[in-house]
């Protein structure tokens, strides 16, 4: 059987402005702004819908593929 690939969001901490736009639109509630410094994603629960990437004004969220 081949490996199953799935998409998930990833945040570049140094670019994130911690505005919380991503947190507001995440349907699973797996994106959180941590201590006012950066957003973090629980990739084990992320469904890779890309809503957070669409709203991020800093371009800090990208979609990655994991096996």
């Amino acid at each position: 059987m081949g490996n199953v690939k799935r998409r998930h969001a990833a945040v570049e901490r140094g670019v994130c402005v911690a505005c919380g736009s991503c947190e507001d639109v995440c349907p699973r509630g797996v994106v959180k702004v941590m201590k006012g410094s950066y957003a973090a994603v629980d990739i084990s629960l992320c469904i890779g819908c890309g809503r957070c990437e669409m709203v991020c004004p800093a371009g800090a969220v990208t979609m990655e593929v994991a096996e």
């Binding site: 402005v17 911690a18 505005c19 736009s21 941590m34 201590k35 006012g36 410094s37 669409m54 709203v55 991020c56 004004p57 800093a58």
Partner: peptide, 28 residues
């Protein structure tokens, strides 16, 4: 012109408070 909350990426208040949070939380 850009994404709805693009202002948040340059907002002076947001910049200052993020700096404060980073310092307060030991640059995590």
């Amino acid at each position: 012109l850009f994404k709805p909350r693009s202002w948040c990426a340059v907002c002076p208040m947001g910049t200052m408070t993020q700096m404060i949070c980073k310092v307060r939380n030991n640059n995590e």
